[in-house]
Amino acid sequence: MIQRIQTVFLFLVAVAMILVVLFPIWQQVNPDQTMMLTLTAWNLEKIDIQTQQVIESEGKFFIGILAIIAAGLALFSLSQYKNRTRQMFLNMINSLVMVVTLALIIWTSHQANADFRPEANGAFVLGFWAIFGGMIMNLLSNRFIRKDEMLVRSVDRIR
């Protein structure tokens, strides 16, 4: 049923993955405070802090595409409330997509940091932490879907 708690969790997964697309994921500032490296879901930009102009930009569109796929899977899973096993399967695939997205973000930020300022780590910002929120909401929705499925099976057994 659409009015169950897992519907709210699946909607929050989609919101969290849209936050990944909209907000920066990782930032690093060089020691003399003149340049900043910013990773978003679409590109990696080297920005001059004084003028706020982009000096160099490298496309990282695969992160944005995976985040949009994860949001779409969450919304599609939300609409599959009549078939709970399919819904759990879609959530499992969505978890895998989010883990791959997270791994690509960590790998990309590590590579960028090695070239820019290897002695210090950058800071992960809202876009990065939204993925973890989405993963937790996805796990919670799967838990409640499984709980509903067990309840339906136990009622069928009683009949």
Score class of each variant (00 low, 15 high):
39 L>D: 02
104 L>F: 12
63 I>M: 10
128 F>A: 04
91 N>D: 06
105 I>T: 04
92 M>I: 00
79 S>C: 09
118 P>V: 06
36 M>C: 09
71 A>S: 11
61 F>K: 15
97 V>T: 04
117 R>C: 02
37 L>S: 06
111 Q>A: 14
91 N>F: 00
99 V>N: 09
70 A>V: 05
124 F>P: 03
107 W>D: 13
70 A>Q: 06
40 T>D: 05
51 T>G: 11
44 L>G: 00
90 L>K: 00
77 S>C: 14
49 I>S: 12
63 I>L: 13
56 E>L: 09
68 I>N: 01
68 I>D: 05
136 I>L: 09
127 G>D: 08
56 E>T: 11
102 L>Q: 07
50 Q>G: 10
87 Q>I: 01
132 F>K: 04
66 L>D: 08
88 M>I: 09
80 Q>E: 13
113 N>I: 07
37 L>A: 06
55 I>H: 10
130 A>S: 12
65 I>E: 04
59 G>S: 14
98 M>K: 00
76 F>L: 13
128 F>N: 04
75 L>F: 13
40 T>V: 07
48 D>R: 14
91 N>C: 08
117 R>Y: 14
73 L>K: 02
85 T>Q: 13
49 I>F: 11
42 W>E: 11
92 M>T: 00
59 G>A: 15
91 N>Q: 12
40 T>F: 03
50 Q>V: 11
36 M>P: 03
48 D>Q: 12
88 M>V: 10
73 L>S: 07
36 M>K: 13
49 I>G: 06
117 R>A: 08
71 A>V: 05
40 T>K: 04
84 R>P: 06
62 F>M: 14
36 M>L: 13
79 S>V: 05
